[in-house]
Write a protein that binds this DNA or RNA. Structure first.
Lengths: 172, 172
DNA sequence: CGACACATGTAACACGTTACATGATTTG
DNA sequence: CAAATCATGTAACGTGTTACATGTGTCG
């Protein structure tokens, strides 16, 4: 989030409210979760870190706004972020740990967890596909993001099949 | 992490050092990143939250250890965690934002980013597959986790193809 | 007048990460 | 004796999350 906001500001200065909209536009339906407050929290932290500079701007027909622009140091940071090839959490670690825990504690049945999870992921997959079809503009990049989500969901659903094969039979 | 540790303690009480090993065993090669200090930080936070109870145990032939066991409230929490069907970040949001930022700022070329990322993911995929083959015990659950990683990596690589199609041609 | 878009923030907390700090026992 | 293993923690910081708090201008 932090780096992404900084990068958007590197493209063009903006105030918080505007930045939030730009972020929402870049993410499409996926970004519907973001909290308004977070933007301002992050902006002030970026400013404290010297990556961004804020200037108060008075407006006649609207409340004052505070426009932020990147500093030289901030721009360096963006460039570094873009060149960083790390890739977020590629393993479904959490669910794997749930299976282990379910089997170990007897608080839940592993196979039942797998089934519930698959139903949930399939529900989401349908939702994502529905959203992808009903996306307005054809030049909208956020459709790509939906496609990425769908591919991952399909991979995860396939993984759950493997899990089921592995855990079926040795139920406790 | 927090919930997973709690769940492991729900199976059987343990002290920090032991818990770290159990966690490492459950995760296999994927879990090699975990920091020793984190375990103790998390245990004390769990204790503060009243989800576990720690008891000092003196040992003759080794340093004292502190054994933690779940409380009733902790056990409830584990059950709730197991039944919670949320699923971590299914969309490759960060990279998508990088592409948008690269195109917008001119600080990097989107297509070059995609190529670099694909090389990186393919490298990881090979690594994961190598690890899966060289796993010792055949009854080891952590192989499943590696399989999940591999499936996701393949999905992400396929997604990068789509990205490339979309971004090629409109290079700046 | 009431709802909605515009516009901004603070306080508190949870969690992960890292660096640092300490010490005992076993084994080569 | 040195190194590895066993064993535990604290302090500080970065980031995300949420709830709360505040106000203006426009339009129906």
């Amino acid at each position: 989030m932090r780096d992404a906001m900084l990068a958007l500001l590197a493209k063009e200065p903006a105030h918080g409210y505007e930045l939030r909209q730009r972020l929402a536009a870049a993410l499409g339906p996926v970004g519907e979760v973001l909290n308004p407050g977070q933007v301002y929290v992050t902006l002030s932290r970026l400013e404290r870190a010297g990556l961004v500079r804020g200037v108060q701007v008075a407006q006649s027909a609207a409340p004052d706004k505070k426009v932020y622009e990147v500093t030289a140091e901030g721009r360096d940071q963006v460039a570094a972020w873009l060149l960083d090839s790390s890739w977020a959490k590629v393993a479904p670690v959490e669910f794997h740990l749930k299976l282990v825990a379910a089997a170990g504690t007897g608080l839940a049945d592993p196979v039942a967890l797998i089934d519930a999870q698959r139903r949930e992921l399939m529900r989401r997959l349908r939702e994502v596909q529905r959203l992808a079809e009903s996306q307005p503009a054809e030049g909208d990049d956020s459709v790509l993001l939906l496609e990425g989500s769908a591919l991952r969901l399909q991979a995860d659903i396939r993984w759950l099949e493997s899990c089921e094969e592995r855990w079926t039979g040795r139920a406790r």
